[in-house]
Computed example of a mutant assay.
Amino acid sequence: MATSAVARDVVFALRQKIAKIEGTLAERLEAPVEASQPSGLLVRRNGVASARDFFLPTGVERLDETLGGGLPKAALTEIHGTQTRNAGAAAGLALCLVSLMLKACQKPGALVLWIGTAEIFREAGLPYAAGLNWLFGLAPERLLIAEAPKPSDALWIAEEAARIDEIAAVIVELRGNPRGLDLTATRRLHRRAQEAGRPVLLLRQSAAPEPTAAPVRLIVTPAPASLRRTIAGPLAGSIGPPAVSVEIGKSRTALPGKFILEWNPNAHVLEERRDSPENRVAVVSPSRGRADSAAAAGTVLAFRPATDPAPGDQPSREQRPAHRRPRRAG
């Protein structure tokens, strides 16, 4: 009996180490204290805590179910933009999540630190201060921006800033696949977020997929906006709330999913939209005040086989390619 108990302790310790490396919650590995305890609760050694203590619900029921409760509060979350021109969509989703985090933390003076390199700020631009308060409920003076000369400096700033109590969330925005952003660096950043108990968002623009320690990776692309909804129905020719397409590239549950999310700037909540072609407008509207576009091409017929050209159609000696000119004899 003693040997089996020791073996169970060793196995449990190994499972805890694996869970920490993978970024999952080791508390899920423990058995419930009582058999009658609800299965939806997470058990800790010092008591019982609900899933809301560990996860941030996005408000989209289907997305939260696929993620296993929402985004982890004290962890590294990767928001992946495949192209630089999609930087606005990826940054917009990051600000949506930050708005939800600030609403959940209930700290009036909490700050948000946005870290990036000069390269990414030059390519993707800076957050527009005048729209932060209206769109996301984030006062401009609560957003701090740090410009680092190199990606390694940006990661160092993020690790140190995660310790500051006045900062509620940290956003690290990087472009491409820098050499310093490897599995070891992201594991260190994820560990710092866990120790500090606050979220760190890794916002990656125009990057190729590569392994990171973030337990959740969201792939973000722009989505066509829907028509503005009124009491009488959709308003023709209008543009509704901003929308993004979010695909789960990595999560604790390993469940795939793709969602069209809309941000309600009045209520500051995320909503899922069941996409339909008749209730959306193009991402970029057609240009106005120009001539009609060219007509569509007609039926394409096969060309006739080449025939010997007439004597007058032969190219001159100077026009012939060098490799086709006759060789001199002798």
Rank of each mutant, 00 (worst) to 15 (best):
V300I: 14
T212R: 09
L181A: 09
E271T: 08
F12W: 05
G257I: 02
P211H: 13
L261E: 00
A31G: 06
K20F: 04
R62M: 09
R204S: 10
L189K: 06
G68P: 01
V244P: 00
G69R: 07
P242Q: 06
A129V: 05
D182M: 12
A104W: 03
R191A: 14
G47T: 01
H190E: 05
E195W: 12
A161T: 08
I79V: 06
F136T: 04
L93Q: 03
E173T: 10
E78F: 13
E30D: 01
S251G: 04
L41P: 00
A193S: 10
E160A: 14
E141D: 06
G312C: 09
I260P: 00
G125D: 02
D308A: 15
L97R: 06
T186S: 15
P209R: 15
T221Y: 03
T221D: 02
T77K: 08
K20C: 09
R8D: 00
T221E: 05
F54L: 09
D9G: 10
I171M: 13
A243H: 02
A51E: 01
A13G: 10
P127I: 06
G312I: 05
R274A: 11
G257R: 03
A26Y: 11
R328Q: 09
A87Q: 02
R44H: 09
T58H: 02
K150C: 05
G59M: 03
P277E: 03
R320I: 09
A291Y: 00
E195Q: 13
A110N: 03
P234D: 01
L14E: 01
Q83P: 00
L126A: 12
L201Y: 13
N264K: 11
P211T: 08
V10N: 01
G68C: 04
T3F: 14
A124N: 03
D53V: 08
A75D: 01
I145M: 13
T58R: 10
S226R: 11
